[in-house]
């Protein structure tokens, strides 16, 4: 790991000022993506701004009809939170499938979203649930926030503060894990929302998370796994690597989407 200067702000405002003052500074929270990348010398930020001492940034609460999760809430907090379990059990389930127990004690929802790894789990939930990403500057919808491989709308001095999830009527996440890395080879989040249905896919797209509108329209007409019979996802733009071809991933999207609809309908 190359040398860096370490900063520990007490507030989001202080953190943002540090980002403005120090060019190429990076925010760190759990560090479970950033530190491995720095150890491999794939990243060498001259400054690290640690958010873990900013108070009130890791809360989980219901606000009106939305579940609000603070940016530094850890995966284990989300997985075990009775509030999340009650409001959006699919989100608690998703958090419980990230990494392993020790990783879940450190990794954060804000870190996962800001990194926008194409195989990360949270982007699928945020996209399918139509969550709002609240930063120190503005509110962003998922379609604006996610901008392709490891790329987001976040500006250099912009920090995710919290994520607001409107409650779905039903939802489920089904993940086909890469057996070695535990990342999603393909993950499908299905949400039956008050006025429509959203299906978001992670792990498969070469530009990161995306929605499958053909599935959404079929499921809006009838929210049943059978509605997806005969609808095929084109494999253009899907990842192809030693873990699975684009054709295989396209097939998995269909299989997992059906399982997710069954799970959302309470059929295991």
């Amino acid at each position: 790991m190359y040398e860096f200067k370490y900063h520990r702000p007490a507030t989001v405002r202080q953190a943002a000022n540090l980002l403005i003052k120090n060019e190429d500074a990076k925010v760190i929270a759990g560090g479970h993506t950033l530190l491995p990348v720095m150890k491999q010398r794939l990243a060498a930020p001259p400054h690290l701004v640690d958010l873990s001492h900013v108070e009130g940034l890791d809360g989980i609460e219901m606000k009106g009809r939305s579940l609000v999760i603070g940016a530094t809430a850890k995966h284990a907090d989300v997985a075990n939170s009775p509030i999340v379990g009650e409001a959006i059990p699919a989100l608690a389930e998703l958090a419980s499938l990230i990494g392993d127990p020790a990783v879940r004690h450190k990794g954060t929802i804000g870190g996962s979203l800001a990194n926008n790894d194409p195989t990360a789990d949270y982007p699928a939930a945020v996209m399918a649930l139509g969550a709002t990403i609240v930063t120190n500057k503005r509110k962003l919808k998922p379609e604006e926030f996610f901008q392709g491989l490891f790329t987001t709308a976040l500006e250099p001095d912009e920090i995710i503060v919290k994520v607001q999830f409107p409650l779905p009527k039903k939802a489920a996440y089904v993940k086909f894990r890469n057996q070695a890395s535990r990342y999603a080879l393909v993950g499908v989040f299905v949400a039956r929302r008050p006025s429509d249905v959203a299906v978001a896919v992670t792990g498969a797209g070469s530009e990161g998370v995306f929605r499958v509108t053909a599935f959404e329209e079929a499921l809006k007409a009838r929210f049943n796994a059978k509605s997806l019979d005969g609808i095929h996802v084109p494999h253009d733009g899907l990842n192809s690597d030693l873990h699975g071809s684009a054709e295989y991933r396209a097939h998995l999207i269909g299989v997992l989407a059906k399982r997710a609809v069954d799970a959302a309908n309470g059929k295991a």
Binding site: Y6, P36, D50, S52, V103, H105
Partner: peptide
């Protein structure tokens, strides 16, 4: 809580 100390900075 169990954490991986190879992926945690001492300053943290």
């Amino acid at each position: 809580k169990a954490v991986k100390s190879c992926t945690t900075l001492a300053v943290m």
